[in-house]
Simulated scan of single mutants.
Amino acid sequence: MTGIALDDALWKDVEPGTEALVDQWLVKEGERVTAGQPVVRVVLVKATLEVPAPAAGVIEKIHVPAEQTFARGASLATLRTG
């Protein structure tokens, strides 16, 4: 299993303590995804970004629902690979 998170490089110019917002999940729990497929749309400062699946697999659990904020390093979902 692997986590789905916002890439650390996207946080590099963001002030410490700033949170991002899950705008919309593009997939549901139990849904199969392919590597690179956008799975969630997040808002970080003034940019809206689509976060891709890091690998092919099944979305096991969504940890941060839509309309909730999260901090740097947070796992947004668990992806079951294989």
Results as ranks from 00 to 15, higher is better:
L6R: 03
E60Q: 14
K46T: 08
D13I: 05
T2L: 15
P38V: 13
R72H: 13
E50N: 12
P16M: 08
E15Y: 08
T78A: 13
V64A: 05
D8W: 09
V27T: 01
I62P: 06
G30L: 07
G73R: 08
G73M: 11
T18C: 04
T48V: 15
A66P: 07
Q37Y: 02
L44Y: 10
V33M: 05
V42A: 04
I4G: 00
M1A: 13
E67S: 15
A35R: 14
A53M: 06
P52W: 02
L21P: 10
D13C: 01
E31I: 00
T18H: 07
V22E: 06
V45M: 11
W25C: 00
G17S: 05
D8E: 15
L26V: 01
H63F: 13
V39F: 04
E60K: 13
V39G: 02
L6T: 01
A20R: 03
V64W: 02
V14M: 03
T81D: 04
P16Y: 09
G3Y: 13
L26D: 01
E15Q: 12
A74V: 15
P65D: 12
A9N: 14
L10N: 06
E67P: 07
G57H: 00
L49F: 09
R80P: 01
L10H: 14
V43A: 05
T34F: 11
V40E: 00
A53G: 01
Q37F: 01
V22I: 12
T48R: 07
A74F: 09
A47G: 04
L26T: 01
E31W: 06
E67I: 04
A77N: 03
G36P: 10
D13W: 04
S75H: 14
A74H: 11
I4V: 07
T69P: 07
L26P: 02
V42D: 03
A74C: 10
